[in-house]
Simulated scan of single mutants.
Amino acid sequence: MLALNTNLQKLVSIAQKTEKTGIGLMSGTSLDGLDIALCRFKGSGLQTKFSLINFITIPYADAFKNEVQQVFAHKEASLEKVCLLNEYIGDFHGQLVLQALNGWGIKPAEVDFIASHGQTIYHAPKRRHKQPGYSNGTLQIGDGDHLAVKTGILTISDFRQKHIATGGEGAPLALYGDVLLGSKIGENRILLNIGGIANLTWLPADGNYAGIVCTDVGPGNTLIDAACRKHFNKAYDEDSKIAFSGNINEDLLAALLDHPFFSEQAPKTTGPELFSLAYVEAAQQRSNTLNISNEDLVCTLSAFTAKTITDFISKNFEADNIRIFTSGGGARNIYIIEHLKKALPLVAIKTTGDLGIDPDAKEAILFALLGNEALCGESMAIGNNPAVLMGKISFPL
């Protein structure tokens, strides 16, 4: 019998370790920076024991953001730019990983694997693109081979493609980590992530996997942030100061809510391809609100995010003893959280910090967990999601 090559021998050795150290990388639609979570795992599946060792978000420079925004969420973009950015981002993210490890005093050889989400540049579920003969599609760039070579660490990447290949929409992948880290028998839980897009996972108290729902519900921070950049030259609405200084325009809010996405059956996915400033301007034209103040616009967009979340929860979950655990940048948006509490007065709302999961680090942690599952887990059937292990493996050499 032929022996395994060195790379495969190392892969088997890592997979068989009782304890693994992995890095989860997340770069979201907000393009704030790269989230880097250094995690330790014991076991897999429902027996997974997890701890967060270190976490950092390394902000992106404006020049990098501008490069990515040339191809981000555009139906038409330079194919050459997409090609070049795929290689560049993989190498760049590798540099940032090495920077983080150096700051923590940890050598790359002490890390078993990197699990990288990559940078989404286009998300095209069939329900949106409606092109005959084509299924769901999504594209994340930031090549895993470049990451592996730059860092010298085994890298697992491109997680969303397996989900699509087996009939899913490629999102939200939070489902698998939420179930493994957030479920509790006897308690109905919603893990609500408010990133660029808002998504949630419903974890019923009976523990029945068939009843679990994981879905996007609408915009999170993406429209608020875009309006802040355009009208106030700010990356986001810090402490919701702009939203609190304005008033909700009910006509505009009604127009923003007037879209088929909100009545589509879950699970469903969306992105900035739909919820963009062009979407807002079209709603303003329909509602004759193009001349409202910029403060009122940001206030109304904040209310829009909050209402799409609360409407979805109210319409779909009629259970007692619900607890919501928030994460993502929107978990710090005071305006949104206050609206959630007012609209859902009987629901306890906390952050995932109460579950021992850093709200800022949650998505990076979940990809590290998916990496651990890819190495030593078994596929799990959850709700109507495909039972798959996701991720493509890249060796350093």
Rank of each mutant, 00 (worst) to 15 (best):
G33D: 11
A348Y: 10
E67P: 00
W104R: 07
I224S: 05
F325D: 03
I242H: 09
A171N: 04
D360L: 12
Q69S: 13
A165C: 12
K392Y: 05
A171I: 01
L84H: 13
E87V: 09
N188T: 03
S78W: 07
I53M: 12
G383A: 06
G330P: 00
E378A: 13
G353I: 00
H93C: 05
N193M: 01
K126C: 05
F55R: 03
L175W: 03
A381I: 10
P132Q: 13
K241I: 14
Q70N: 11
L203F: 03
I349P: 02
L52S: 01
G356D: 03
T29W: 02
A381Y: 12
A205P: 08
V213D: 10
R40W: 07
E76C: 09
G90A: 05
K17G: 07
T48N: 09
T120P: 08
K184L: 13
L31N: 02
L11N: 10
K130Q: 15
A331V: 03
W202I: 07
E373I: 08
L203A: 04
V179N: 04
L180Q: 06
F41D: 07
K150G: 02
T326C: 15
L290T: 12
D239E: 14
A165M: 06
Y122C: 06
P386C: 12
R286M: 13
A124W: 08
T352D: 07
Y279W: 11
A148R: 05
Q140W: 02
Q140P: 11
I156W: 06
Q47I: 04
T21R: 15
D311Q: 13
S276G: 08
Y209T: 09
S394G: 03
S27T: 11
I313A: 01
I382R: 08
E187A: 11
P260L: 03
G90T: 01
L355D: 05
E80K: 13
N199F: 10
E238V: 08
L340S: 06
V213K: 11
D178C: 02
L192S: 03
I185S: 15
F41N: 06
F304L: 01
A374F: 02
C376V: 08
F41C: 07
L274P: 02
A124T: 10
K342G: 09
V388T: 12
L4R: 13
A303N: 13
A243N: 06
A243P: 04
L180W: 01
N5K: 06
N66H: 11
A61Y: 10
G371S: 11
T310Q: 02
N249M: 11
F72L: 12
L346M: 12
G43R: 01
A205Q: 14
Q70V: 01
L101P: 02
L253C: 04
G377W: 03
C228W: 11
K392N: 14
Y335Q: 04
N233M: 11
G356P: 02
S314H: 08
H93T: 00
N247V: 05
Q69P: 02
F113T: 03
D112A: 04
T201I: 07
F64N: 00
P132F: 09
I349M: 01
S379G: 14
E80D: 15
V217T: 09
I121Q: 07
G167E: 12
L277W: 12
I292R: 09
P125I: 00
A381S: 15
E250L: 10
D158E: 13
R229G: 10
E318C: 13
V12S: 15
I324L: 09
A282H: 11
G220W: 01
T222F: 07
